[in-house]
Amino acid sequence: MIYDIAKPLFFRLPPETAHGLVHRSLEMYQQTPLRSVVRDRYRVESERLQTTVFGQQFPNPVGVAAGFDKNAEIAPALGSLGFGFVEVGGVTASPQTGNPRPRMFRLPEDRGLINRMGLNNDGAAVIGERLDRLDTDFPVGVNIAKSEDVDPEDAPGDYRETYEQVASGGDFFVVNISCPNSQGFAELQNRDSMAAIIETLQTAGAAPLLVKLSPDLPEPAVDDALSIVEEFDLDGVVATNTTTDRPASLRSPARVEGGGLSGEPIKARSTEMVRYVAQRVDVPVVGVGGISSAEDAYQKIRAGARVVQLYTGLVYEGPSLARKINRGLLELLDRDGFESVEAAVGADL
């Protein structure tokens, strides 16, 4: 109810300004006794929602995608809102300011966002220290990305440098080779580049290790990526990142902006990618893209996702979204006769 009142005010602000205001508010709130009060109200406690993935115990399958908490500053606050895990980052070896503003755009008619943030973050050393100080009762993943000024041929060493500075504070690690808003990532999505990066990270001890795929990859490139997943015995696949494609159905004026599109417009496409990946590799899939309801999350779970993540849905639905989804999932499980979320994974395959 409070967010319904505040949302029109937030939407009068530039998107990045509004996000910064929400971020700072959550950062302050998590230092107060109010956090435990909100946690009791927003967390949906049920064994039926619990799942074990990548060797980690998740209290529920609904997480926050990378990009929302870039610098590992508000994971406890997000957990108190009912999320079962948080992925921080993308993190690069050195601090980055990202692309010039404006670099984030709302598409309210389409319930989407376009961002070309450019991996702005505080750098691996600072973020690693924050991760070490985190006190959470849910998994925290770290999204690792290539530094802007590093040539693709030097990417393996750059990824390793980042990993080594965040290694002790992460519960799982996601290799981001699919960011559409930073230079040099397209060259990383070929088989040889992926293999070199993953081999270097595994040599450094990175585990559990997942790879994040772009929805814009043609089918042969997806198959190449999945062959790497099998060859190196990776622990999972995140499907998917944002897209540079612009569906003809988009109505918002901001559709002409460059950057990665997320939210409702990519929901069906990302679900199909989840299905495609789940049918071809025997590792957990993290489903991301267009989730703003229990039904959205359930579709990805039935398509093969073990857990799901969201970002854009928070902008349009507000802080009670995780609670709504988790309560709704329990109702959907009852409707379809599943004892648990784990039992529903891949039901449509």
Results as ranks from 00 to 15, higher is better:
274 V>Y: 09
266 I>Y: 03
244 T>Q: 14
266 I>H: 00
240 T>S: 14
245 D>T: 11
253 P>F: 01
252 S>Q: 01
254 A>H: 05
259 G>K: 02
268 A>W: 13
249 S>T: 14
250 L>T: 00
260 G>R: 05
263 G>K: 04
253 P>M: 04
251 R>L: 13
234 L>K: 01
250 L>F: 01
273 M>I: 15
238 V>R: 03
242 T>K: 08
253 P>R: 07
237 V>A: 10
234 L>E: 06
238 V>I: 15
236 G>Q: 04
247 P>G: 06
245 D>S: 13
252 S>P: 00
257 E>A: 15
253 P>I: 04
250 L>N: 00
273 M>R: 12
270 S>Q: 06
273 M>E: 06
257 E>M: 15
268 A>P: 09
261 L>H: 02
272 E>F: 09
238 V>A: 08
238 V>M: 10
270 S>W: 00
253 P>A: 01
237 V>D: 04
244 T>H: 04
244 T>E: 12
252 S>W: 00
250 L>Q: 03
265 P>R: 08
260 G>W: 09
234 L>H: 05
261 L>P: 00
258 G>Y: 12
248 A>W: 11
262 S>Q: 07
265 P>Q: 08
239 A>Y: 03
253 P>W: 01
235 D>T: 05
248 A>E: 13
252 S>T: 00
265 P>W: 05
247 P>A: 09
257 E>F: 12
244 T>I: 15
260 G>V: 04
271 T>C: 14
263 G>L: 10
247 P>M: 11
260 G>A: 09
274 V>G: 05
273 M>N: 08
267 K>C: 02
261 L>D: 00
247 P>E: 07
269 R>Y: 12
274 V>H: 04
258 G>N: 14
267 K>V: 02
236 G>P: 04
236 G>C: 08
236 G>T: 02
249 S>D: 15
258 G>I: 09
271 T>L: 09
271 T>K: 11
269 R>H: 12
259 G>D: 03
269 R>Q: 13
239 A>W: 07
269 R>K: 15
243 T>P: 10
245 D>I: 01
263 G>H: 01
243 T>K: 12
272 E>R: 14
254 A>I: 03
243 T>V: 12
244 T>A: 13
272 E>M: 12
